[in-house]
């Protein structure tokens, strides 16, 4: 039983990380219809921002987090401005290939400038253990889960209640409404990339603290998993990211308990393929009708 609770906590922790990153994929997809392959690398960049802020400026957890979120947002917006915006009217394939190119560039540029070795992430939190029904839970685990949940609720509020959030939803449904609201598409896209990147940076720092090493290629696997989570829940849907992230977290943790851990990635992708085949619009998505 205690083993089960332990695994449940681990799954919850992993799932909330996936969900945080999945939000960025899903938001960009909702607004631009683009799979932003570079998003996983913004997660990586966020972790590195956090690393350097903590090591060089010697800031504590909250300021480190906030500053890294800001820097990642700037990076995300800059990428959109330089690489994606000129292609907004180009064939979609060109845009996706560009995203792939940005992703590779970020990974390899980081490696070329900072080196490919793993770096141990500074201790931003004094890790303490608690007993919970026979299982041990750390304050770090609780922090990860709480921060993720709070940010997701905050995002939900922003999207539901604020002007910019309503504009984001309008873009995916009806572009004409946008003009009526007096908000330009560029503003909405900027906000989307900014928020999504800040969330990814948060995830990056949380992962850095939990594992506690970071490297230039850490965004590949996690990024893909998060993307799978987004598709699983229904890409373009905020709630879908949460549902997908948690499910993927649970499946991975419990599959790892049954199978050799080397199969983990394969299983994640197998799930993705099965979901895409059975319900391409995701668990929470509605079916699309083809128009003739």
């Amino acid at each position: 039983m205690s083993y089960f609770i332990q695994q449940l906590l681990n799954a919850l922790q992993l799932g909330s990380i996936y969900a945080l990153i999945a939000l960025g994929y899903t938001m960009v997809y909702g607004v631009l219809g683009l799979i932003n392959f570079a998003h996983g690398d913004i997660f990586m960049a966020g972790a590195f921002f956090g690393f350097f802020i903590a090591v060089m400026l010697k800031l504590s957890l909250i300021p480190t987090l906030l500053l890294a979120m800001f820097l990642a947002a700037v990076l995300g917006i800059a990428i959109e401005r330089v690489a994606y915006r000129p292609l907004r009217k180009a064939p979609r394939m060109s845009l996706i290939i560009t995203a792939l190119g940005v992703s590779l560039f970020l990974e390899n540029f980081t490696r070329a400038t900072l080196g490919g070795q793993q770096r141990s992430f500074p201790k931003l939190l004094n890790v303490q253990e608690f007993a919970l029904g026979g299982a041990t839970v750390t304050n770090l685990q609780i922090l990860i889960i709480v921060v993720s949940l709070v940010l997701m609720l905050l995002l939900r509020y922003v999207v539901q209640k604020t002007m910019i959030g309503k504009a984001m939803r309008a873009v995916s449904d009806n572009k004409e409404v946008l003009a009526l609201m007096g908000i330009s598409l560029d503003t909405v896209v900027m906000a989307t990339f900014g928020i999504g990147s800040a969330l990814a940076a948060t995830a990056g720092i949380l992962v850095g603290m939990a594992y506690p090493v970071i490297d230039p290629y850490m965004g590949i696997a996690v990024g893909w998993k998060a993307f799978i989570a987004a598709v699983l829940g229904g890409i373009g849907l905020i709630d879908g990211a949460l549902v997908g992230g948690l499910i993927l977290g649970f499946v991975e943790i419990f599959a790892a308990a049954l199978l050799p851990s080397t199969y983990r990635d394969g299983i994640a992708f197998a799930i993705l393929i099965i979901v895409l085949l059975l319900k391409p619009t995701g668990l929470l998505g509605r079916p699309v009708v083809k128009k003739v």
């Binding site: 080397t262 199969y263 394969g266 197998a270 993705l272 393929i273 895409l276």
Partner: peptide, 28 residues
């Protein structure tokens, strides 16, 4: 056969998924 039940971005993801699964299997 299953992959072409989808198209566009989803097909991209599925083909890449099979790429990763093949590599994962070979590793195992």
């Amino acid at each position: 056969i299953p992959a072409f039940k989808t198209f566009g971005d989803y097909l991209a993801v599925i083909t890449l998924g099979f790429n990763m699964i093949i590599v994962n299997l070979l590793n195992n």
